[in-house]
Design a protein around this nucleic acid. Structure first.
Lengths: 99, 99
DNA sequence: CATGATGTACCACAATTAGTTAACTTTGAA
DNA sequence: TTCAAAGTTAACTAATTGTGGTACATCATG
């Protein structure tokens, strides 16, 4: 069974990192929250696979600094990147579903 | 219950659209296949909501041509774009899970 | 503490998406 | 068939990811 994380779990954490909602819209805030969640999932899976950021980066032809940025939710990644990292890099299967 | 589509479903369709696997790598091929699947999901949900591409575009502050490109899998979108379209535009919830 | 391994931040640039406009094509209904 | 609405495509610009490289920070452990 796959793991799914709720956005609410990280809301407080994000407020600490980015400050209270104010200047930015709710949408932008949620986008950051979701990048953060993806990052958390990646870190979890990477550690589970016992790989360092550098090893994972090598597997997909990227640099460790890039993996770090994604894990910390600092960048909005493309779908193809999501697949490349999880499937090519970690041998996991990504599923996107609409509810 | 959310809908999930398999990549294999569209493999033949993609071969028709892009030709046989050859010059491009399997990875690139799968990336296209997945963009296509996302597009199919979007079209399905949009029609279910009884919206035209233009109406959906207006809801998220975009143009109909952009929606069309996504529905036809012609562009590799960012995660934030995926969320914006489905959640803001269609009121649906996107879930990304790792198996 | 000292050292090496791991992870993060910063800066710069190339490649690609995001977004617009406008023309063209398809579809469906009168 | 005609016409308008809906959808597709191309061309182009602007914004941002993707990427490399380097320096810095953190962590674990002898």
């Amino acid at each position: 069974m796959g793991k799914t994380k709720s956005i609410t779990t990280f809301e407080q954490h994000l407020k600490n990192q980015y400050g209270e909602l104010g200047t930015e819209s709710r949408d932008q805030f949620e986008a950051k929250a979701k990048s953060f969640i993806i990052g958390e999932m990646l870190k979890e899976e990477r550690l589970h696979a016992k790989l360092t950021q550098e090893e994972l980066a090598n597997k997909i032809g990227a640099k460790k600094s890039y993996i770090s940025r994604i894990e910390n939710g600092k960048t909005d990644i493309q779908l193809s990147t999501l697949y490349r990292i999880f499937e090519l890099g970690l041998g996991k299967r990504i599923t996107v579903s609409v509810n």
